[in-house]
Design a binder for these strands. Sequence first.
DNA 1: CGACCATTTGATATGGATCAAGCGATGTGG
DNA 2: CCACATCGCTTGATCCATATCAAATGGTCG
Lengths: 228, 228
Amino acid sequence: MLTQNAAPIRPFPASLTSSPMARSGTSSEKKIIELMGAPMNFKRDVEIYGENEPADYLYQVVSGAVLTYRVLCDGRRQIGAFYMPGDVFGLESGQAHVFSAETISDTKVLVVKRKALETTAGRDSEVARQLWELTARELERAQDHILALIKTAEERVVSFLLEMAERASREGQIELPMSRRDIADYLGLTIETVSRTMTHLESTAAIELRTSRHVVLKNQAKLRRLNA
Amino acid sequence: MLTQNAAPIRPFPASLTSSPMARSGTSSEKKIIELMGAPMNFKRDVEIYGENEPADYLYQVVSGAVLTYRVLCDGRRQIGAFYMPGDVFGLESGQAHVFSAETISDTKVLVVKRKALETTAGRDSEVARQLWELTARELERAQDHILALIKTAEERVVSFLLEMAERASREGQIELPMSRRDIADYLGLTIETVSRTMTHLESTAAIELRTSRHVVLKNQAKLRRLNA
DNA sequence: CGACCATTTGATATGGATCAAGCGATGTGG
DNA sequence: CCACATCGCTTGATCCATATCAAATGGTCG
């Protein structure tokens, strides 16, 4: 009945002490993690961190994809977000992670020690601003997610597709890294409903399913109308 | 079919220029707005700001209560959050508000010009940290809200009651400032379902409804069990 | 090629929405 | 101060979107 998978393998790079570099007038956009991060690789379906573990690191996806989730006592799983190349995850206000994070494809990330960042932020207001902005963007994403969750099944699926299109498409073609189960748990639906809705969207010529993971947006105007 | 009400009256205090004060090593916890804020009063059911208006101010509730919401094109309303005394709202990452804010009782707030705060944050890392923390807390709240929205009706209502109990109760007695409609739009349910669920919780002795707005938590253990 | 897993499709069940009264508290005008 | 109108809440009856249960299909990897 549980939705989990993933063997918990969680190696950390030995080389992650407070790096003593870069603190001058770094006004270059979104570069903190790029500058300070240590690269790390994960296989697909591997846990990067678990709920309740200390939130000591911040991650940026370089390639691949990651999702975060929480599980209710009876096994229902809520996916918090999907992270694609460029996205930052691992931000938490408290000391411990509220979500678990796991890869959905082979993934390369940059990792930064959170303490190091916060220390730097104390000195460099530009770094502080960037951290704030990351959190604010994450908040905005969560708010959009909330909005999606009050919609009908079809609207949720459409929001999802449009969101993915914005983030991971090449001219209306989306290559979904996640399974139907993941999509369902993100949207608060069942896999059957997600699947049926996709099929229905295809039958109305709004999309085309080259394969179950490869979606072509045939009629974006229509999709936007369906998005409520 | 629309859920709106509230006449849009939106006065701003003339006295809100970047105040030139307080910038030293203010390490006093959560005091930025208290220090810099100008008091303002609103009657009940009054709009404080609207979606798409410039997000120039930050607010802290002193007394009363405020809610934020978005409306979909067909009138469905999603309430983002309820703000009680001490809570800060109006934080936005972009230049414009994504939510509207309106009072649900006569309300006193403290108002700070956002630019002033951000300028201060550029100089004072403590202020920057506080701004960040506020945003992070808001994010956490949104994430909990998401989790609530995948649950059953009863679980949603219970989460809501427990949340309110944490924030606005005196020994298990909650005085709800919001209507059933507001609760329903917060939880993604109908007023009928909220009402029925409350009645059902009362019939199982989990709560007592002194009046429709005055809830007594009779059996918190049971409620917590029902919360999933 | 065969086993396995993800996805789709089909049949049925159900939780919550919708439609429709009733009821009780609050406020207003006579 | 009371009669009445109003509004917010509750309760009841029915409907429907989505869940659940079940099976078929298809794609992938040894």
